Amino acid sequence: ESMATIGLPAFGYGLRYERGLFRQSFEDGRQVEHPDEWLGDGSPWGLAKPADAYRVSFGGSADGETWNPATSIVAGAFDTPVVGYGGRWV
């Protein structure tokens, strides 16, 4: 937002979770995370870029030089314009 406010051409990257962010609560003195469904019906601000999807793998084991992931997801890309203060640039 600060860069857009002063008209500086730039790109920023962040994480967008499947359901948005998450809600936090405390139970027995421990932080517990719960889904926050604000992206359940999509987002008017996120412009999907299906050609820029990547498989991301987690966990698993290695046999010599071969990695055998335990699970994989497909991470999709979205462009989300951020308007600067005063609304002159995104």
Rank of each mutant, 00 (worst) to 15 (best):
residue 2 S to D: 15
residue 3 M to E: 01
residue 4 A to V: 01
residue 4 A to Q: 00
residue 6 I to Q: 06
residue 7 G to R: 04
residue 7 G to I: 02
residue 7 G to T: 02
residue 8 L to G: 10
residue 9 P to A: 11
residue 10 A to P: 01
residue 11 F to Q: 05
residue 12 G to I: 09
residue 13 Y to F: 06
residue 15 L to D: 06
residue 16 R to V: 11
residue 19 R to K: 08
residue 20 G to E: 03
residue 21 L to K: 06
residue 21 L to P: 01
residue 23 R to N: 08
residue 25 S to Q: 05
residue 25 S to V: 01
residue 26 F to N: 05
residue 27 E to N: 00
residue 28 D to Q: 10
residue 29 G to T: 00
residue 29 G to K: 00
residue 29 G to H: 00
residue 30 R to A: 02
residue 30 R to V: 01
residue 31 Q to L: 08
residue 32 V to Q: 06
residue 33 E to R: 14
residue 35 P to G: 12
residue 36 D to A: 13
residue 37 E to G: 13
residue 38 W to N: 11
residue 39 L to F: 15
residue 39 L to Y: 14
residue 42 G to M: 13
residue 42 G to E: 12
residue 45 W to I: 04
residue 47 L to D: 14
residue 48 A to Q: 05
residue 48 A to N: 06
residue 49 K to V: 13
residue 51 A to M: 02
residue 51 A to L: 05
residue 53 A to M: 05
residue 54 Y to N: 13
residue 54 Y to W: 13
residue 54 Y to R: 14
residue 55 R to P: 03
residue 56 V to W: 07
residue 56 V to P: 05
residue 57 S to P: 00
residue 61 S to V: 10
residue 62 A to L: 06
residue 62 A to N: 10
residue 63 D to F: 09
residue 64 G to C: 06
residue 64 G to W: 04
residue 65 E to Q: 08
residue 66 T to V: 15
residue 67 W to A: 12
residue 68 N to Y: 15
residue 70 A to Y: 14
residue 70 A to H: 15
residue 71 T to S: 14
residue 72 S to W: 11
residue 72 S to D: 14
residue 73 I to G: 08
residue 74 V to A: 09
residue 78 F to W: 07
residue 78 F to Q: 06
residue 79 D to I: 00
residue 80 T to K: 04
residue 80 T to W: 05
residue 80 T to V: 10
residue 81 P to C: 03
residue 84 G to D: 02
residue 85 Y to T: 08
residue 85 Y to M: 11
residue 86 G to L: 02
residue 86 G to I: 01
residue 87 G to A: 12
residue 87 G to L: 03
residue 88 R to Q: 10
residue 88 R to S: 07
residue 88 R to L: 07
residue 89 W to M: 07
